[in-house]
Amino acid sequence: MTTLNGRPGNTPRPQTPPACLDSAAGTTRQKSKATDTSRITKAGYSVPEFCYGAGIGRSKAYELMTAGLIRFVTVGRRRIITDSPADFLGRLAGNGEG
């Protein structure tokens, strides 16, 4: 096994979507007449879902949560991010930060 620079070691792994996003995209379900999922909006994101959507790492996400730049709620020991990745990135672009 070689790395990008030709030296032996672990090769870098590509970023993959969280399992919950992976399984939803791979299955095809028929819509029932009782529920129309196109109108359902996601109220909160797990940390891996948010990181994948925003294109940032987990450590950076926790840093930004501590700094108050990402809105979240704590349920037990779990953090549920209430911002969508698009809203977060739009807010950063509006502030001129990056």
Results as ranks from 00 to 15, higher is better:
residue 18 P to Y: 03
residue 39 R to Q: 12
residue 40 I to D: 02
residue 7 R to M: 11
residue 58 R to F: 10
residue 8 P to I: 07
residue 11 T to G: 01
residue 9 G to H: 10
residue 64 L to W: 11
residue 98 G to C: 05
residue 7 R to P: 00
residue 1 M to E: 08
residue 76 G to R: 01
residue 16 T to L: 14
residue 56 I to M: 09
residue 71 R to L: 08
residue 65 M to A: 02
residue 12 P to S: 14
residue 8 P to C: 05
residue 87 D to V: 08
residue 35 T to W: 07
residue 43 A to N: 04
residue 74 T to R: 15
residue 9 G to M: 07
residue 23 S to G: 00
residue 44 G to H: 10
residue 9 G to R: 08
residue 63 E to T: 13
residue 63 E to H: 11
residue 87 D to S: 15
residue 6 G to A: 09
residue 62 Y to R: 03
residue 97 E to M: 12
residue 30 Q to K: 10
residue 32 S to D: 11
residue 45 Y to G: 03
residue 70 I to E: 02
residue 96 G to S: 05
residue 87 D to H: 14
residue 81 I to E: 00
residue 73 V to S: 11
residue 5 N to Y: 14
residue 26 G to I: 00
residue 47 V to H: 00
residue 73 V to W: 01
residue 81 I to A: 01
residue 98 G to E: 13
residue 45 Y to A: 04
residue 55 G to V: 11
residue 97 E to W: 15
residue 83 D to V: 05
residue 4 L to R: 10
residue 69 L to Y: 13
residue 69 L to S: 12
residue 25 A to S: 12
residue 81 I to K: 02
residue 91 R to Y: 09
residue 51 C to F: 02
residue 17 P to Y: 06
residue 56 I to Q: 01
residue 33 K to C: 11
residue 81 I to L: 12
residue 60 K to E: 12
residue 13 R to H: 13
residue 89 L to K: 15
residue 65 M to G: 03
residue 8 P to A: 12
residue 80 I to Q: 11
residue 91 R to A: 15
residue 82 T to G: 06
residue 21 L to R: 08
residue 79 R to Q: 11
residue 78 R to H: 15
residue 34 A to C: 06
residue 10 N to Y: 14
residue 33 K to M: 08
residue 76 G to S: 04
residue 51 C to T: 01
residue 53 G to D: 01
residue 49 E to M: 04
residue 29 R to I: 03
residue 27 T to V: 13
residue 93 A to G: 09
residue 8 P to M: 04
residue 83 D to R: 06
residue 83 D to L: 08
residue 14 P to L: 04
residue 48 P to T: 02
residue 42 K to I: 06
residue 22 D to P: 00
residue 68 G to E: 00
residue 23 S to E: 07
residue 37 T to H: 09
residue 98 G to T: 12
residue 23 S to Y: 01
residue 92 L to S: 04
residue 31 K to H: 08
residue 48 P to W: 02
residue 79 R to Y: 12
residue 94 G to V: 09
residue 23 S to L: 04
residue 16 T to V: 13
residue 90 G to Y: 02
residue 25 A to Y: 01
residue 72 F to H: 14
residue 14 P to C: 06
residue 48 P to M: 04
residue 31 K to Q: 13
residue 81 I to Y: 03
residue 62 Y to S: 07
residue 44 G to M: 05
residue 90 G to W: 02
residue 35 T to Q: 06
residue 80 I to H: 06
residue 6 G to T: 01
residue 97 E to Y: 15
residue 34 A to Q: 14
residue 7 R to L: 12
residue 71 R to H: 10
residue 80 I to F: 04
residue 41 T to Y: 00
residue 79 R to V: 08
residue 50 F to R: 02
